[in-house]
Amino acid sequence: MSTDNPMLSIQGLTKTYASGHVALKPVDLEVRRGEILALLGPNGAGKTTLISIVCGLVNPGEGRVLVDGHDILAGYRETRVRIGLVPQELHTDMFETVLDTVRFSRGLFGLKPDPDHLRRVLEDLSLWEKRDSRIMALSGGMKRRLLIAKALAHEPALLFLDEPTAGVDVELRRDMWGLIRRLRDQGMTIVLTTHYIEEAEEMADRVGVIHKGELLLVEETAALMKRLGRRTLRVHLAEPLERVPDELSDWSLELEDGGMVLSLSFSPAEAPDSVPRLLRQLNQLDLGFADIHTSQSSLEEIFVELVREQS
């Protein structure tokens, strides 16, 4: 296959489950070779459904899906051998050893044994020392890395990671991010799903935002973050205020918690100096404050905003 056609091309894909639930409205998406694409969406958005269809776990509705130019139905062997899937849930055997289970994965995908490759994969995931351990003796983090090792055993070109860091603590999340970057640097195309904005921002070259089965947009991460990345600044005052002082009327400030908190919603991209400017002005007005706190808008707020923008 030529190298300039997309690694994954989804055209008008729909899915309605037997229950009648519409999990995917017509979805169009192209994933470029060598990129990390994050599918960002809240629980129930249809991320797992989308991935599962491409990987062959769920029957597609209408539409067409091509992997490296091959149709996922007519050419399922060609598409599946190119795809590695790391599922959301930790589905593992118990009694197998680590090395046996990655050998199994490679064989299942029809590839001839390659002990060197499997060793490299296990070493890369810090599992080589555990190669003779039974899976049930592994920690949750190790099991997740083992699922990645299994997905890499047959040297896929396209890797799907379904919520790779859901429920993973901060430090391990960083490790996971490092690992995903290394895989991309080795030439892998990666699609990951997440409901953490920071994760999409940190990892992805492009982000697709999916909500209620609808792919709202796909954009370069930096451009999207500029649009989406609203933050909220909360200033906890030393003394309560009755109303927002007139001197501050240029800011769209709100008083909360019985006048104890001044809150400002702002876009760091449009006004990067908002925080220092406001604080300076508070100082000039001699308004004492005990604490300040900034936070990202929640995913739900962002979706509401996006849906409003779209319509």
Binding site: C55, R80, L85, D93, S105, L108, F109
Partner: peptide
């Protein structure tokens, strides 16, 4: 039951 069937179903089998 355990969910490990995902791997076989996603394989070129």
């Amino acid at each position: 039951f355990s969910g490990t069937i995902y791997e076989t179903l996603s394989a070129p089998v």
